[in-house]
Design a binder for these strands. Structure first.
Length: 934
RNA sequence: UGGGCUGUAGCUCAGUGGGAGAGCACCACCUUGACACGGUGGGGGUCGUUGGUUCAAUCCCAAUCAGCCCAACCA
C-alpha cells in the first residue's frame, strides 16, 4: 500500500474490501504451528456458525469482541491463532435441504418429494452439494466484519479430520462404559422424526384444558366398590393430555392421603379401554394438586416413567414416532395425536366419564428447530453417561482453572452441572456423523469400532452380517470436541501442542450448556486439560425496544446492511461500546451513526495533519534522525506545555486501554479511546496547536512531530477496535515503518508495512506530566469561563472584547503571561492586559474569578452586553456558591464529622470553604455594582 | 419451586463510601482555514421504595415493589 490523499470525508465503502484483501493476500492473519522463542501463543477458536447460516447481530458481536482480543494480542507480538470453521448443524441443515427438495417436484403418490424418495445416500449427497454452494456465504460475511481469522486452518465439523475425532471419541467412551444404548423416555419431534436432547426442547406457555376424568374403582375380584350411599366409587383424575390414558398403567395416590385410605389395594377400570389398573401409593403425588390422584403413563411422561420403574409397572407405548396412535391404542390406532384427543374426549363425555373441563395454562415442550410439539415417547437411543464427565468439569471451575466472566455465570454452570442428566446423543437424521456401531444379524450383538469391522465382536460373523446403526450423532457432540479436534487431534500435532489449551472462549450465555459445558467435559477427559482458561460471556443483542430480533417480527437489524450503510468500523465500535452490558444489548442504528461520526472525526483529524505538511502550509517535514519515537522520548522535556500535556494524556489512555483489555472490559477501553480522541486530541490539542503551526519555523516542526506521533499511537491503539479506518489512515501517513513480527519470521514471510502488525503502544512513565496536566486544566477552566460568559450573555463569536486581569500571586501572573495568546485564541478575546492587584474596580465592570491559579478577570460591559443578562449570570453563580457553602458548612458544623472523618478531608473542606467564601464576597460586590448601573 | 440479573437525566447506559457522568435527544447561538458526520453555551436526575450500618450511603446490609432471564417433576 502506498501513501495517498485522503478523501473529503469518511467513506468506508471505498476502502474496506481492498484493505481486507491486502491483509489476507499478505498472510497477516496466519499463525505459526510453533511459536518463536519467547513468544506467547494466543488462541481462540471461533464458535462455529451453522454452515448454512447468515451473519446476524449475535455473530457480529461475538466476532467483533474476539477480533479485538486477537488483534490486540497479535500487536503485542503473540503467536496469535483465531481458528475459523463452521458447524454442520444437523437438524437445521437437513430441514433446509428437505424444504428445497420438496419444492423440486412430486413423487409417484403425488406428495412433494421427500428425502425418502431420494434415499439416504442421494440425499446426503444433496446436502453436501448445498454445503459447497452456500457454505462460503458466512465466511465472506465474517470477512466483511474485518475478522482476522486464519483461513488457512478453516475447519468443518464433518470434514475428514473432525470425523476421525468424533469416531475416536465415540469408541473410547463406549469402551469406557460412558456411552450406552438404552430404552428410555426421550423427547421426540414427530415432524423432524428424531429424538431430541432435553436442551433442544423449549418449554412454552400454552393455553390448554384440564380434563377431569372419572376412573371407576373395583376390588380385587373386579367387583365395583360402592360408596356409603351405594353409588359406585370413583377416582377423579385430572390431565392435560387425555389421549395418553390409552397408555395408563396405574393410578397413583399419596400414601398419607386420608381421603383415599379406603382405596388402598383396590383397582380402577381404565375408561374406554376397560383395562384394570392398580392403585399405587407414591409420595411423588402432590395432594394439593387437582384431585390428588395421578394417572401413570410410563411410556409418555418422564416422571411417570420413573414411577413406573419404582412400581414395576408395564410400559404401554401408544404414541408412535410418526405422530399417530399405535396398535396398542385399540380403537384409536392410526389417529394423529390431536385427532385421538378429540375422539377420546368425546367418547369420555358420551360415556359419562368426563366430570368437567377447565381452562388451564401450562407449559408444553416445543422442538427448538420447528416449533412442533415434542412428545415424550419411549424409545431405544444412545446416551452419554454424564456424571463421571461432569465431576472433573465442575472441579475445574471450582478450582479456578477455568474462570467465567461475568463470574455470576459460574453459579448457573454449577446449578446445571450438579443436576445434569444423561445426554441423549442419537438423532434419527441422515445429515451428521453416523454412529460407528454395527448390529450383528446373527447374534444381535453390537460392535463399536473406528472403521467398519470385518467381523462381529461377539460371534465373529462376517461383515456381510453387520448392519451399521442408522442414527447420527447430535450436532453438539462434534462441537464439544471443537477446541482440540480443530487442532488435529487425535494426532499429536504441533498446532495442538502449541495452542491447546486455548486462551479464551468468547460466546453467548445461551449456549453454556449446549456447548461450553460439554467442551469442558470432553476437553478434560480426552486432553487431560481444560480446553480454555477463560470463558467470556456476552449479552444478547436485541432491538432498540429490547425485543428479541426475529424475522417474523421484522425487527431484525442486519449487520451487513449496517456495514454497507455506515461501515464495519462504526458497527464494531458500537458493539464494543455496548459489550459491558449485563444480559441484553439494545441496539439501534442511531448509535452506529454516532460512531460513524466518530470515524469521520478521526478522519478529519488525520486530514488536518496532512494539511499542515501540504506545500501551501509550509511543505513536508523530514522525520527526525533516529526516528520519531526516539525524538519524543528524548525531547519531551523541552516541549511546549500543551505538547507535554497531550503526551501525558496519551499515556493515561494507553494505560486504561491496556488494563481494560486485560480485564475484558472492552467498553471501558472503547470509551477511553473515544474520550481521548474527540475531547482531548481534537477539541483541545489540535486547537492549541494551531498557533504554533501558524507561527512556522521550529515550533511548527515540533508540532507536526507531536501531531504525527500522537496520531500514530492513537491509530495503533484503536486498531483492534476499528481495523479498517485505522489502517487506511495510517497508510496515508508519512514515516511508516515496516512491521517486523515474530510470527512472520516463523512463517518465513517478509516484513510488511501494515498497521495491523505494528507493536501495540506502550506506556512510557517518563512521558507522564502532572504539571502540564495541571496547567492545561487551568487554561481549560479559564477558557470555559469566558465561553460561558459569552454564551450566557449571547455574545457573538465574532465580537472580540478586552479583558483586564488581576493576578493573585506572582506565579499566577507568570502563568497568564505565558499562556495569554493561547487563552485569547481559544476564547476569542481581544486585549488581555494586567492590572495591579488592589486597583479599584471601574464602574460597569463584571468579573470572572478562577481559583487555580488565583486570577480575576474584569470585563467592561458597556456596549458589550445587556446588564440585566449579566446580572442574571452573576446571580446564578452566587446561587451555586451559596449552595456549595451551605453544604460544606453543614458538614463542618457537625462535631462527629470533625472528630471522626479523616483529618485530611476536614482540612480540604475547610480550604474549600474559605475559597468559596471569598469568591462569593467578590461576586456579591460585582452584583452590587451591576445593579447600581441600572 | 429454585437460581440469577436489572431498576441512575426524555432514551440507551457508565460510575463511585465524601453533595452524580457519557452518548443520543432537547433549547439557544455560530458555515471560524480538519470536520455541520462540525463548534460553543444551556436546560434536565429526591441514583425504584423503606429501614439498618457509618461522622457521611446512589454505592455496603436487610426488607419491599417492579421488570427480565435461566433451570425445573406439579399431572
Amino acid at each position: 500500500m502506498h501513501s495517498h490523499e485522503l478523501g473529503k470525508a469518511f467513506e468506508p465503502q471505498s476502502f474496506e474490501n481492498s484493505i481486507y484483501e491486502f491483509w489476507e493476500k499478505n498472510r497477516c492473519f496466519e499463525a505459526s504451528d510453533q511459536s518463536a522463542p519467547g513468544q506467547e501463543p494466543f488462541c481462540i477458536v471461533i464458535p462455529p456458525p451453522n454452515v448454512t447460516g447468515v451473519l446476524h447481530m449475535g455473530h457480529a458481536l461475538t466476532n467483533t469482541l474476539q477480533d479485538i482480543l486477537i488483534r490486540w494480542r497479535r500487536m503485542k507480538g503473540d503467536n496469535t491463532l483465531w481458528l475459523p470453521g463452521t458447524d454442520h448443524a444437523g437438524i437445521a441443515t437437513q430441514t433446509l435441504v428437505e424444504k428445497a427438495v420438496a419444492k423440486e417436484g412430486k413423487n409417484a403418490s403425488g406428495r412433494p418429494l421427500s428425502r425418502h424418495d431420494l434415499g439416504r445416500e442421494k440425499f446426503v449427497e444433496r446436502v453436501w452439494k448445498w454445503k459447497e454452494d452456500h457454505g462460503s456465504q458466512i465466511k465472506n460475511q465474517l470477512k466483511k466484519m474485518g475478522s482476522s481469522l486464519d483461513w488457512t486452518r478453516e475447519r468443518f465439523t464433518m470434514d475428514e479430520g473432525l470425523s476421525v475425532a468424533v469416531r475416536e471419541v465415540f469408541v473410547r467412551l463406549y469402551q469406557e462404559g460412558l456411552i450406552y444404548r438404552g430404552e428410555r423416555v426421550i423427547n421426540w419431534c414427530p415432524r423432524c422424526q428424531t429424538a431430541l436432547s432435553d436442551l433442544e426442547v423449549v418449554p412454552t406457555d400454552r393455553k390448554g384444558s384440564f380434563w377431569h376424568i372419572a376412573y371407576r374403582v373395583v376390588d380385587e375380584s373386579g367387583k365395583p366398590v360402592l360408596n356409603a350411599d351405594q353409588t359406585p366409587a370413583q377416582l377423579v383424575i385430572a390431565t392435560t393430555r387425555p389421549e395418553t390414558l390409552l397408555g395408563d398403567s396405574a393410578v397413583a395416590i399419596h400414601p398419607d392421603d386420608e381421603r383415599y385410605f379406603h382405596l388402598h389395594g383396590k383397582k380402577v377400570i381404565l375408561p374406554l379401554v376397560g383395562r384394570q389398573l392398580p392403585i399405587i401409593l407414591d409420595a411423588y403425588v402432590d395432594r394439593e394438586f387437582g384431585s390428588g390422584a395421578l394417572k401413570i403413563t410410563p411410556a409418555h411422561d418422564f416422571n411417570d416413567y420413573e414411577i413406573g420403574k419404582r412400581h414395576d409397572l408395564p410400559i404401554v407405548s401408544v404414541m408412535g414416532k410418526e405422530g399417530r396412535v399405535t396398535a396398542e391404542g385399540g380403537a384409536f390406532a392410526g389417529m394423529k395425536f390431536a385427532e385421538a384427543r378429540e375422539a377420546i374426549v368425546q367418547q369420555l363425555q358420551e360415556q359419562g366419564f368426563l366430570v368437567r373441563v377447565e381452562d388451564h395454562a401450562h407449559k408444553i415442550g416445543l422442538c427448538q428447530r420447528c416449533d412442533t410439539v415434542a412428545e415424550p415417547i419411549i424409545s431405544k437411543q444412545w446416551f452419554v453417561k454424564i456424571a463421571p464427565l461432569a465431576e472433573p468439569a465442575i472441579a475445574a471451575v471450582q478450582s479456578g482453572k477455568i474462570e467465567f466472566s461475568p463470574k455470576s455465570w459460574e453459579k448457573t454452570y454449577f446449578e446445571w452441572m450438579n443436576h445434569i442428566r444423561d445426554w441423549c446423543i442419537s438423532r434419527q437424521l441422515w445429515w451428521g456423523h453416523q454412529i460407528p456401531a454395527w448390529y450383528c444379524g446373527r447374534c444381535e450383538g453390537i460392535s463399536v469400532a473406528r472403521e467398519t469391522p470385518t467381523q462381529c465382536d461377539h460371534c465373529q460373523a462376517p461383515t456381510s452380517e453387520l448392519r451399521q446403526e442408522e442414527d447420527v450423532l447430535d450436532t453438539w457432540f462434534s462441537s464439544a470436541l471443537w477446541p482440540f479436534s480443530t487442532l488435529g487431534w487425535p494426532q499429536s500435532t504441533d498446532a495442538l501442542k502449541t495452542f491447546y489449551p486455548t486462551a479464551i472462549l468468547e460466546t453467548g450465555f445461551d449456549i453454556i450448556f449446549f456447548w461450553v459445558a460439554r467442551m469442558i467435559m470432553m476437553g478434560i477427559h480426552f486432553m487431560g486439560d481444560v480446553p480454555f482458561r477463560k470463558v467470556y460471556l456476552h449479552a444478547m443483542v436485541r432491538d432498540e425496544k429490547g425485543e428479541k430480533m426475529s424475522k417474523s417480527k421484522g425487527n431484525v437489524i442486519d449487520p451487513l446492511t449496517v456495514i454497507q450503510q455506515h461501515g464495519a468500523d462504526p458497527l464494531r465500535f458500537t458493539l464494543a461500546m455496548m459489550a459491558g452490558q449485563g444480559r441484553d444489548i439494545k441496539l439501534s442504528v442511531d448509535r452506529v451513526e454516532g460512531y460513524r461520526a466518530f470515524c469521520n472525526k478521526l478522519w478529519n483529524a488525520t486530514k488536518f495533519f496532512h494539511l499542515q505538511i501540504h506545500p501551501d502550509q509550509g511543505g513536508p517535514v523530514e522525520e527526525p534522525a533516529g526516528g520519531l519515537a526516539r525524538w519524543v522520548l528524548e525531547q519531551h522535556q523541552e516541549l511546549l506545555v500543551h505538547h507535554q500535556w497531550i503526551l501525558s494524556r496519551l499515556q493515561s489512555t494507553i494505560q486504561t486501554v491496556e488494563a481494560s483489555l486485560e480485564k475484558f472490559e472492552l467498553n471501558v477501553a472503547a470509551q477511553a479511546l473515544y474520550q481521548f480522541t474527540w475531547h482531548e486530541f481534537c477539541d483541545w490539542y489540535i486547537e492549541l496547536s494551531k498557533l504554533a503551526l501558524r507561527e512556522g519555523g521550529e515550533r511548527r516542526v515540533q508540532t507536526i512531530y507531536i501531531l504525527r506521533y500522537v496520531l500514530g499511537e492513537l491509530l495503533q491503539l484503536m486498531h483492534p477496535f476499528m481495523p479498517f479506518v485505522t489502517e487506511e489512515l495510517w497508510q496515508s501517513l508519512p514515516w511508516r515503518a515496516a512491521a517486523s513480527h515474530a510470527t512472520r519470521k516463523q512463517l518465513g514471510l517478509p516484513d510488511l508495512t501494515t498497521l495491523m502488525l505494528q507493536p501495540f503502544p506502550q506506556f512510557h512513565e517518563k512521558l507522564t506530566h502532572p504539571g502540564a496536566e495541571q496547567m492545561i486544566a487551568s487554561i481549560q477552566s479559564i477558557v470555559e469561563a469566558f465561553r460561558n460568559f459569552r454564551g450566557e450573555n449571547n455574545i457573538s463569536p465574532k465580537v472580540e472584547f478586552s479583558v483586564k486581569y488581576c493576578p493573585g500571586s506572582a506565579e499566577a501572573d507568570a502563568f497568564l503571561r505565558a499562556h495569554s495568546t493561547q487563552i485569547q485564541f481559544m476564547s476569542r478575546i481581544g486585549n488581555l492586559v494586567s492590572v495591579t492587584p488592589g486597583t479599584p474596580e471601574v464602574s460597569g465592570e463584571s468579573m470572572i474569578r478562577i481559583s487555580h491559579p488565583p486570577l480575576e478577570f474584569r470585563i467592561q460591559l458597556q456596549g458589550l452586553v445587556n446588564v440585566d443578562e449579566e446580572v442574571k449570570r452573576v446571580e446564578k453563580e452566587i446561587e451555586k456558591l451559596n449552595g456549595d457553602l451551605a453544604f460544606i458548612e453543614g458538614k463542618l458544623s457537625q462535631e462527629t464529622f470533625l472528630s471522626r472523618a479523616p483529618a485530611a478531608l476536614v482540612e480540604k473542606e475547610r480550604a474549600r470553604q474559605g475559597d468559596l467564601l471569598s469568591k462569593k464576597l467578590e461576586m456579591e460586590k460585582v452584583l452590587g455594582r451591576l445593579r447600581s448601573l441600572k
